[in-house]
Design a binder for these strands. Structure first.
Length: 802
DNA sequence: TGATGCATATTTTTT
DNA sequence: ATATGCATCA
């Protein structure tokens, strides 16, 4: 993400008297007309006189804006023009959320004379940031949005940290570690601490650390509050991991959010400076903010309190990543004088689609009630498709796409197929290919996560930051230089002995008493690095990368291998090369190696711009958020898949929101589908229809035969789950009798630590421990009469006791 | 040191 | 089914 120019950034050393506000702005107060639209929709404390800051030069031009505001409905207009003090906009799906933010920014600049560089707009995705910038740009005269701070939380704070991080003991050329890098560092930390990866999986630790960071719990506090054994171990790992990050002069994604908070706490003068900088703060997708983001936004906005948040609690689907739905639910408590606007007029979907979505989401308890109102016609009913298995399901989807494309005026690009888990995409993909339907999968392995790309990028990273040992280890023996694990271990010992970094050890390898062959290899490696580093001072990223490829012959090696895979990798490297060239061309004022790397680190695989080709879109429901399609297929609507194993009410509510997001993507038509059996991890499983199907108003759901579900109400009531409460349904499912032979394993998932089980020979006992999974799963059980035994789940024929 | 087979673990993942 | 990490052998 590129936003603004580096040089409009305030220097830390600059005194407060010189801040831009004093230079360009003067203050005056204006009474803003309060919009009295449906009291419920818009409430604002009475007697509230907003303070407005204006740009000296544009005070006069207020009239030209009326046309611009006419493009908004009343509530939207209210949200755009209430420019002072805290504002919350609850924007239902398809209600013109982005429009409100962009118009508000344009309004601030054009009408209120705010300087763009005093506005900070935070988003979650690069795509959203890009779109926002683009739309603001086209609302304003070209160029007048320059200096605007629009970007993702991560990219904006990465930029801020580049200027201040020396205050925290990092240097400004820090590397941003992605999830893989940090996993590997965590793994290292665990090994050093002698903590077995089996008893405490790396993924778990990574999750716990990330969650701690997202909640702004630092290692010290984590340690203090660590209750059980695993958490205590994790506390140690967290501590060591943080130290290692510092040694590497690296920040992980979460650090980009919490380091600013640490910085502000330690250096209030920096915070003040930024508070003087950002007069207006706007946050998109506020329901997805985690605690760290919440804190940092609150700190930045504390002085002027011009904080504007847009979100929809019903679309909060990232709680498992630390998003804290209470941030939006409690916004009104945090800012007592908040103006709240509810956007409920939906411009996207037909009446039936909204009716369906409303009927589903209304079952959630934790929510801010709001019902979307359609301004379109009723449209078609939803269609429910049942298939024997997932293959047949995919075929039905494909056949529908083909027939609708023939009959009606839909093109491939009108269709989207959603699924809950990525694993489901494979079959769909197969079938699409067979039916010759052009498709595109969103969110498969990210370009930047591919090995060859990561290797090349690791070189670039290391050139910039020679403390980045993670990258160093990646490239030291790639391409192979006969520097193996043994040599690396020795090298590390040598480095530790001398108290120098690994790279310094490489440079001084001749002092280490290593084999001459190794010294030579290390020397030639260092030669490559030094040469590239020198070059990187003046040359473009493209030139450095080309030189890298020449010096290391990585592309040549791949070409020589001449397998389909190696050639694909070769192509990817070429792609990287042309990306480097594009980058230099498109970012004339920020195209250093560091800029390029930051861009790569913070890019994601969902960012790719939609090209003009005409294809069906395949993606997970998560990836679909923020998009819309005329026709939507929601597949795999089965219990334990969608909703995915969620017995806790909170999780179930999140699954329901996810389903809500899926439905509200559709403009004209929704197909719901489920399969009676499905392969899961290579094992066939019988499936039950998802409870969500039964939650939709049955008068607008048609079977393929054309019968409405409401007509079947008497016969199939229990089947659709409609007459059952959620609780009853869960109960029924938990005790679902006699799943067929192959299904038993699934049911045995219920066996975990503490479960009471019964065994034909040993009698009853308590599960102490579960090891492994699948057909090799074993359990350790303490039997009341027979004592402790370890049994294979597969053969033990255990039954769960309640 | 590199290649090969074996065991293991598989939600979602804006950055 | 499939990818990934880990241990063992050539």
């Amino acid at each position: 993400m590129k936003a603004g120019r580096r040089d409009d950034f305030p220097r830390y050393s600059r005194g407060p008297g010189e801040c831009p506000e004093v230079k360009y702005l003067r203050l005056f107060v204006k009474r803003v007309k309060l919009y009295e639209i449906h009291q419920e929709i818009f409430r604002c404390p009475t007697g509230f006189i907003p303070e407005i800051r204006r740009h000296r030069n544009s005070i006069t031009e207020t009239s030209g804006l009326s046309d611009f505001l006419n493009e908004l409905n009343e509530v939207q207009r209210g949200a755009v023009t209430a420019t002072s003090g805290p504002v919350m906009v609850l924007a239902g799906a398809g209600s013109g959320k982005t429009r409100v933010i962009t118009y508000r920014i344009a309004y601030l600049i054009r009408n209120e004379g705010v300087s763009p560089s005093n506005i900070l707009a935070l988003t979650f995705t690069n795509k959203a940031a890009g779109e926002m910038r683009h739309r603001v740009d086209s609302l304003l005269r070209h160029g007048s949005a320059g200096g605007l701070w629009i970007g993702t939380f991560h990219s904006i704070f990465a930029r801020l940290l580049r200027n201040y991080i020396d205050l925290l003991g990092f240097s400004r050329n820090f590397t941003i570690f992605d999830a893989d890098d940090s996993k590997s560092l965590i793994r290292q930390s665990m090994t050093e601490l002698g903590i077995s990866h089996d008893s405490l999986p790396v993924n778990t630790v990574q999750g716990m650390i990330s969650r701690a960071k997202n909640s702004f719990v630092l290692p010290g506090e984590f340690q203090r509050s660590a209750g059980d054994y695993n958490r205590q171990k994790t506390a140690q790992i967290y501590e060591l991991y943080s130290r290692k990050l510092k040694e590497n002069n690296a920040l992980d994604f979460d650090d980009l959010l919490i380091k600013p908070i640490e910085l502000f706490n330690l250096h209030p003068e920096v915070l003040e400076e930024l508070q003087e900088m950002f007069h207006y703060i706007l946050i998109d997708e506020y329901q997805d903010t985690n605690r760290a983001q919440y804190l940092v936004a609150k700190m930045l906005g504390a002085r002027r309190r011009n904080i504007f948040v847009v979100g929809d609690d019903a679309q909060s689907i990232y709680s498992w990543r630390g998003a804290d739905i209470t941030n939006i639910l409690n916004f009104q408590d945090d800012y007592k004088d908040v103006c709240t606007f509810k956007l409920v007029e939906n411009y996207r979907s037909t009446g039936n689609i909204l009716k369906a979505a409303n009927s589903v989401i209304s079952r959630n308890v934790r929510q801010i009630k709001k019902e979307l109102i359609s301004n379109r016609n009723q449209g078609e009913p939803l269609t429910l498709m049942e298939a024997q298995d997932e293959r047949r399901e995919a075929e039905k989807v494909g056949e529908r796409i083909n027939s609708m494309r023939m009959k009606q005026e839909y093109e491939f690009g009108s269709f989207a197929v959603f699924y809950r888990t990525n694993a489901q995409s494979r079959v769909i993909e197969d079938v699409m290919r067979r039916l010759r339907i052009p498709y595109r999968i969103f969110g498969s392995v990210s370009f930047y996560k591919r090995k060859e790309i990561k290797d090349a990028v690791a070189y670039l990273r290391f050139i910039l930051n020679d403390r980045d040992a993670e990258s160093l280890l990646r490239i030291l023996n790639f391409p192979p230089r006969k520097i193996g694990d043994v040599s690396i271990t020795r090298l590390r010992e040598f480095a530790e002995d001398k108290g120098i970094t690994l790279y310094q050890a490489i440079i001084r390898a001749d002092e280490g008493g290593f084999q001459q062959r190794l010294v030579n290899a290390l020397g030639s490696f260092a030669g490559v690095i030094e040469k590239l580093r020198e070059m990187s001072q003046g040359a473009t990223v493209y030139e450095v990368l080309s030189e890298l490829f020449t010096l290391t012959s990585i592309p040549l090696l791949l070409q020589a291998e001449n397998t389909a895979e190696s050639l694909a990798r070769y192509e990817n490297l070429q792609e990287l090369l042309s990306m480097a060239r594009d980058f230099s061309d498109h970012n004339p004022d920020g195209n250093t190696l560091g800029d390029f790397l930051e861009n790569i680190s913070l890019a994601s695989n969902y960012d790719e711009a939609q090209d003009s080709d005409n294809y069906v879109s395949l993606m997970t429901v998560h990836a679909a958020k923020g998009l819309e399609f005329p026709v939507v297929f929601i597949t795999g609507l089965e219990e334990r898949l969608f909703p995915l194993n969620s017995y806790e009410p909170e999780q179930l509510e999140e699954e329901r929101r996810l389903f809500y997001v899926a439905m509200t993507r559709a403009r004209e038509k929704i197909f719901l589908s489920w399969a009676q059996t499905r392969y899961l991890y290579g094992q066939p499983h019988y499936c039950l229809k998802s409870m969500f199907i039964g939650e939709i108003d049955s008068s607008i759901v048609q079977k393929e035969s054309g019968t409405y579900l409401s007509e079947l109400a008497g016969k199939e009531k229990t089947d659709t789950g409609q007459s059952l409460t959620e609780f009853q349904r869960r109960q029924q499912q938990a005790s679902a009798p006699a799943l067929p032979e192959t299904m038993q394993k699934k049911q045995l998932d219920a066996i975990r630590k503490g479960t009471m089980v019964h065994h034909a020979v040993f009698g009853s006992g308590t599960v102490l421990d579960v090891q492994g999974s699948g057909s090799k799963q074993k359990v350790r059980i303490n039997f009341r009469s027979a004592g402790e035994k370890t049994l294979m789940v597969q053969y033990a024929n255990l039954s769960v006791q309640r």
